[in-house]
Structure formats: structure tokens, C-alpha cells
Computed example of a mutant assay.
Amino acid sequence: MFNPISVAGILRAPDSARGGHAEMTLDEKGKVTVRSGGADISRFHVRSLRVPGAGAGGMRPLLLPDGSVFETADAAAVDEIIRRRTVQGTSLWGGLVDAKMHYAVAAVALVAAGAWLAVTMLLPFAARKAAELMPDTVARTVGEETLRSLDQGVFTGSNLDAARRGAVQKRFEKIAAYAGDARKFTLVFRHGNTVGANAFALPDGSIVVTDELVELAENYDEIAAVLAHEAGHVVNRHGMRMVVQDSIITLAVVVLAGDLFSASSLAVALPAVLLKSGYSRDFEREADRYALDYMRSQKIDPARMSAILKRMTEKAGSTGGPSLLSTHPSYEEREEIFKGGAGTK
């Protein structure tokens, strides 16, 4: 912070050789006030001053924004004014920004708040609505292409015997019926290899369950709990909502234009988004709540889900391989959901 400067001199109007006595004051904020005849003649920021060069008779001139010239014999004061002008910059715009800094900070805060609101509330809302309008052909193409990609790089055919597959299929049919439209659900068996014990949902209603998950489960209620969770993703259209949120602008054009050919073509490129990103934690929590409601309706002990989740978490940690659990809430958080639901009907 600078101390104020006050210097006496002569003020000459533009294009005039005549002048009158005046006083120039520079305050600690860089504001310059020129007074003459007991009145304020001019006010501006020090950055707006110009230094035209040495004046006649040892006088030091300063050029004001309106073209007036202030001259003084106090060279030391002029040098200090010039120094302060240099320290604070040379542009009028910089002076205005400095003077309105609190407004700038407020504006930045408002922009940040608006961006936060858009990302956390408006974008998910728009994604939900867009996903509802998305043609079934897009969801089907995304599901098919995603499964094809996994079959080429991750999965191999299932090794489960017919009896075990049949028992799991029977439980799955109850879950599909509970969802209200069993026709859109398909159970797909695969050997997970590096994916290990897992199950996950695709936007077209396909739910993939790995041999490793079936082998890890101690009973079919545990498998049903996991499959109900995946059905929750399908019912809530999490796959398409996630894709929309990642590609909101392009997909909005597709939806508004109603170009099904473009939508189907675009969908071919979307499996990579699904494979790379995984479902958000909010989506996972929503699917957990759906699974809990299903388990209550079937009188399945919610502790079955806690038990299989614990084993899946431990298995994923011991193998060190990739896990589709990585985007889920923590095991402890999910355990609380199902523990809390154990005594609730």
C-alpha cells in the first residue's frame, strides 16, 4: 500500500498556452484527482497518465486523459507518480479491472456456481430426458457392439453346466418379470477371465454374468441379488444416460433431428465410452436401491447381497486384475444400505 502524494503545479487546457494553478493528488489506490479553483477538475486512474517528455524551464509535464497538461517543478513527486504508474501497469483497462476487482471476483463465483449447477443438476436431468427419447435401435446397437467388443478382447464361452445355467436363468426370469417387461431382458453367460467374478448390464437389456461369479456365490439368492442390481441399471436406463452425459451435444442433435441412421451409426462408437467409464456412483446407488426393493418383494434376506459383495471385493483385491467394482461406492457404504434394509419390510 502506497502513501498518498500531493503536488502543486499548473494545469493547461488542451491546445492552450494559458494555465492556472492546480493541485494533483494520487491516493493509495492509484486514483488521481486534479483540483483547480477549489473544485475537482478531473478524476482518473494513474495508469491513464502519459509522460510526453521534459518540459521547458525544468518543468515536468504529465498528460491527462482529456488532453490537458499538468506541469510541476517537483521532479521527485513526478518520478514517484511515474514509478507507481509503472508498478500498477500502463493500460486503462487494467485500471478498470483493478478498480472493479470485487465485481470480477463475484462474477467468477457466479460462473463457477452456474457451471456446478449445470454439471450436477441440469446435465443429469437433460441426460435422463434424452435417454427416454432415444430410439430402442440405439440401445440395441450399443449393447450388441459392447458385447462384441468384450467377446473379442476379454470373454470366452461359458463353462457352466446346463443345470447351473438353468437354475440361474430361472431366478433371472423372476427379476425380469418384476421389472414389468421381461421381453427386453436377456441373460448372457460368459467366462470372465481377467474380469473375474462380475455381472453387468448393457443398455439393450442384456445382463452378463460370469462363470466366476456363479462359482463364487454360496447360493442362488446371492446371484439373484447381483442380477437385480444389474436390472436396476437397465430399468433406469443408466447405460444410455451415461452415454448421453458423455456425448450430450452430439446426441442432442441426433435426438432433435430424429435421424435414426445417424443415431445407429453413432452408437457403434459408443461402446468404448461404456467400457472406459463404467457407471457413476450415483447410478450404482440407484441400482442398489432397486435391488433392495426387489429382495424385499421376494423375501430374500438383504444380507445375501452383503455377503456376495464382500467376497467379490476380496476376490478383486487378491487378483489385482481389473474390476468392474472400481466405480461402485465402497463396500462399507453398500453394506450399510443392505444392512439397513435387512430389518425393513
Score class of each variant (00 low, 15 high):
K129L: 15
K129R: 15
K129H: 15
A130V: 11
A130L: 13
A130I: 11
A130T: 12
A130N: 09
A130R: 09
A130K: 10
A131G: 07
A131F: 06
A131N: 09
A131L: 09
E132K: 13
E132R: 12
E132I: 08
E132F: 13
L133R: 11
L133V: 01
L133N: 12
L133A: 15
M134Y: 06
M134V: 10
M134Q: 07
M134A: 11
P135M: 08
P135D: 09
P135R: 03
P135A: 09
P135Q: 08
D136L: 15
D136F: 13
T137N: 14
T137H: 12
T137L: 13
V138R: 05
V138F: 15
V138E: 07
V138P: 07
V138I: 07
A139M: 09
A139V: 08
R140G: 13
R140L: 14
R140W: 10
T141P: 12
T141K: 12
T141S: 12
T141G: 10
V142W: 03
V142Y: 01
V142T: 01
V142H: 03
G143K: 01
G143H: 05
G143V: 02
G143T: 00
G143F: 03
G143R: 00
G143I: 02
E144K: 06
E144R: 06
E144H: 07
E144L: 05
E145W: 04
E145V: 02
E145H: 05
E145R: 01
E145D: 05
T146D: 00
T146E: 02
T146Y: 01
T146S: 02
L147E: 02
L147H: 04
L147G: 03
R148M: 06
R148P: 01
S149D: 02
S149R: 03
S149A: 12
L150T: 00
L150G: 02
L150E: 02
D151E: 11
D151L: 07
D151M: 04
Q152N: 15
Q152F: 13
Q152I: 11
Q152P: 10
G153H: 07
G153F: 09
G153S: 11
G153R: 03
V154A: 09
V154W: 01
F155Q: 01
F155K: 02
T156E: 14
T156K: 12
T156A: 14
T156L: 12
G157I: 12
G157N: 12
S158W: 06
N159C: 14
N159Y: 13
N159E: 15
N159R: 14
L160P: 04
L160W: 08
L160Y: 06
L160H: 05
L160S: 06
L160R: 05
D161A: 09
D161Q: 07
D161H: 03
D161W: 08
D161M: 06
A162W: 09
A162I: 13
A162K: 10
A162R: 11
